[in-house]
Design a protein around this nucleic acid. Sequence first.
DNA 1: GCCTCCTATCGATGAACGTCGATTGAATGA
DNA 2: TCATTCAATCGACGTTCATCGATAGGAGGC
Lengths: 119, 119
Amino acid sequence: MSTAAATTPAPTPLRVKGCCNPVSAPLPEVLADELAATYKALGDPTRIQILHILATATEPVCVCDFTAAFDLGQPTVSHHLATLREAGIVTSFKRGIWAFYRLNPAMSSAAGAAVAQIG
Amino acid sequence: MSTAAATTPAPTPLRVKGCCNPVSAPLPEVLADELAATYKALGDPTRIQILHILATATEPVCVCDFTAAFDLGQPTVSHHLATLREAGIVTSFKRGIWAFYRLNPAMSSAAGAAVAQIG
DNA sequence: GCCTCCTATCGATGAACGTCGATTGAATGA
DNA sequence: TCATTCAATCGACGTTCATCGATAGGAGGC
């Protein structure tokens, strides 16, 4: 770098460009990550179907109902449910032998808006 | 039991299970795929930031503004913009040397609800 | 106590994704 | 015409994801 530019402050030396404009402040990184994580959890057709079932159900839904509804192995369904649970979109509890899932009433507003579209 | 039950034709012979209930009809596969594709396109922090910029901008935004805003290479930014464009969430046009992006006014309602959360 | 049933977890595999450097294509200005 | 600039595409690489089979953990029923 020849230190040359050192002397000249160069008011707007470059800037040949005629289009660049300032842009709004970015979202806080944590917020962008949270939104992206929420939408990533929604970015699978099977999980969309799971949420459709939950959004139209009046009671918690047993895992066995999901495994019966999809042409997928039981571990795969369990994995999708875990993904939604870790994203805070659904919650689960056990009753006897069975595990039940329902929509998380405390899900984020972004997730809520998405579920409203799905249901 | 007194075998008395023997005479009874076993009201629910099989179905040892006590939880499985019918489940709502699935979403049409095409619809589930479309929703999943939309949310998958939204499932990346950089693309969330891109949409935040577009949602808060009053005019179309030049690609050079995006490349300046992110600590990513130009091909990577171009790739993210292409992903959003192929998902129907943004549209682009060229003016002279520059390419501009804006929100697609015809985006799906699911995408619109998501952008409303981001903006 | 043992056996059965249901669900979660583990390990593996193939596909898809995010990122980069290099290149190409298009439009401008000298 | 030629050099310059901007953006899209290509090829490659490492990571993440969806799926499966096998296994483990837990709760009831006999």
